[in-house]
Design a binder for these strands. Structure first.
Length: 507
RNA sequence: GGCCCAUUCGUCUAUCGGUUAGGACGCCAGGUUUUCAUCCUGGAAAGAGCGGUUCGAUUCCGCUAUGGGCUACCA
């Protein structure tokens, strides 16, 4: 019997959602959609000390912006809840007790200080079969003493009892078979009485089983603990429904070594979080992709290709295409350095694909905030004219401001090169000619261009000598769209005014 | 230190034993644009090293080197 595909993304609410986590979630999402399965959002808040207020809401809002949707989970509902681990205490306790009863786990009373002392005393100390008999636990203490300590309210942890010398096989979709010997595993803490909460390992296995997760797609940092997880499935007798594992390669620093961190973003000037994040503890603000002007589709497309590719030369893909093409088997095994330049390229590509009218609608509030306005159709026209030189939508103002504001100064180098002694007379003649044009001719890009060009030719002027100062008068610099794209929007009166101002200022 | 994973242009990657080792970003040059950007054309740029296996290895195996991850009462 094949089970319905169910995958999950299960972050810890300890801060902003890291971009690597976004990619992990994306791969889970693509996999679920492709198989007509379900995608579950679970919150792993078993470490009460690291809880950060607002983090959960932040993560939910991030996915909303990105367009990654969940079928079940915290804030989404579903029949396998609760989906917040802190609300599942009683469930975990049952399973901890089961392991204890089966003798597959035991209680340990060692204090953090005692453990620390052991670690300094013995190099490479590990709590396992070779050392646990020298520690304070239910294996070494008499039943009476254990009962006494419990009655005294002494704090304890439950540790998994790992038998040494056993080979454990982890079958990973991306990496193939990974074998390790159980002797190198330690007796991991599964549960702590201090807060009545399990640790990641126990909660993870119990939840994945209860929530009928079929595939665990997570970061490579979990690979070393995968054997422990396999062992726990075995201890619980759940091996036949154990999920398949896929450990994803990590996202690495663009330069140097190590995994991508928030600091790298700060240092190199790019966001590592989807949304701007205000750290409630430090008050620190970290930039986000959304606030930096990225399109969510571009972020997702870029991230998807960091560690996976469809095997064809296609790079720009819609979400639907990615859903179609995605395969865990085609994920790479090695970490991918984060190439921010390529991320920008993706955004540029997506911006070119956007409808001018949609961009104009988004852009209009910015224009209004600057104290100007323009109807959307015309705004769409100028957006279309400058689009190709814009990577982020928030650069639109810089590229279009001269449409609204006449230049007050002129690029010095350009003036030196383009403004010649005869320019004054030639532009003066141009103004006189423009005055003779009808408003209808003027507002047509094609007609006005044709007329002015032929006027320049018949007047015997050098084309560049007229056109370059003309541009300088309108824009203030040697850049921007075609001259007649600009004049058609500016209108006759404003065009003439700008030329006259330039003549006055530059002589 | 121990364990695990990995290793093709600067970067992301294709290659499922036989290829002039392909594409993309970035970079450089030229063209288009009488501006800038876009766009087009071209260029430089890679199999970590050493051993095997094989008629033949980038591809399979081993060792070394390098990189990464894990090694908590964090996830």
């Amino acid at each position: 019997m094949t089970r319905k595909v169910r995958v999950r993304f299960a972050p810890s609410p300890t801060g902003a959602l890291h971009i690597g986590g976004v990619r992990t979630a994306l791969y889970n999402y693509l996999f679920a959609k492709q198989h007509g399965g379900e995608f579950i959002f679970r919150i792993e808040d078993t470490d009460s000390n690291r809880f950060v207020p607002g983090a959960e809401e932040y993560i939910i809002e991030s996915f909303k912006w990105l367009g990654i949707t969940f079928d079940e989970g915290v804030s989404f509902g579903g029949n396998y809840g609760p989906y917040r681990q802190s609300e599942r205490k009683d469930i975990y306790k049952t399973y901890v007790d089961e392991l204890l009863a089966k003798g597959l786990a035991y209680m340990a009373f060692d204090t953090p200080e005692e453990l620390e002392a052991k670690r300094t005393e013995i190099a490479n100390f590990q709590y396992d079969a070779s050392t646990r008999l020298a520690m304070n636990n239910s294996l070494t203490l008499s039943e009476g003493e254990v009962a006494q300590r419990l009655a005294n309210g002494e704090k304890y942890v439950v540790r998994v009892k790992i038998e040494p010398g056993e080979e454990i096989l982890v079958n990973d979709i991306i990496r193939g078979e990974v074998r390790i010997n159980s002797s190198i595993l330690d007796d991991k803490v599964l549960y702590k009485s201090s807060d009545g909460l399990p640790t990641y390992h126990l909660a993870n296995i119990v939840d994945d089983h209860l929530m009928e997760i079929t595939h665990v797609i997570r970061g490579e940092e979990w690979l070393p603990s995968a054997p422990l997880h396999v062992l726990l499935y075995r201890y619980f007798g759940w091996t036949d429904t154990m999920p398949q594992f896929a450990h994803l390669p990590l996202l690495l620093k663009p330069d140097g070594n190590g995994k991508l961190s928030k600091r790298d973003g700060d240092r190199l000037g790019f966001p590592v979080f989807p949304l701007e994040w205000h750290d409630p503890k430090t008050g620190e603000v970290s930039s986000g992709y959304r606030e930096s002007g990225y399109f969510p589709e571009a972020v997702l497309n870029f991230l998807a290709l960091l560690g996976w590719n469809p095997g064809t030369e296609q790079e720009i893909m819609t979400m639907d295409e990615m859903v179609q093409l995605f395969h865990l088997e085609k994920c790479s095994k090695s970490g991918a350095k984060f190439d921010y330049e390529k991320g920008k390229w993706f955004n540029h590509q997506y911006l070119q694909l956007k409808d001018n009218m949609d961009l104009a609608k988004q852009f209009r509030p910015t224009v209004q905030a600057k104290g100007f306005d323009m109807e959307e159709a015309q705004l769409a026209q100028i957006v279309g004219a400058v689009k190709s030189r814009v990577t982020f939508a928030n650069e639109l103002w810089d590229q279009t401001s001269f449409y609204f504001v006449a230049p007050t100064q002129y690029d010095e180098k350009a003036v030196q090169k383009r403004w010649k002694p005869e320019t004054k007379n030639e532009l003066g003649a141009l103004v006189n000619y423009l005055k003779t044009m009808s408003d209808a001719d003027f507002s047509s890009v094609e007609l006005s261009e044709k007329l002015v060009i032929s006027w320049i030719e018949t007047s015997g002027y050098n084309m560049g000598n007229v056109m370059n100062p003309f541009r300088l008068s309108l824009v203030g610099e040697m850049k921007g769209p075609h001259i007649f794209d600009i004049t058609a929007v500016l209108g006759k009166a404003e065009t003439i005014r700008r030329i006259q101002t330039a003549i006055e200022k530059l002589g």
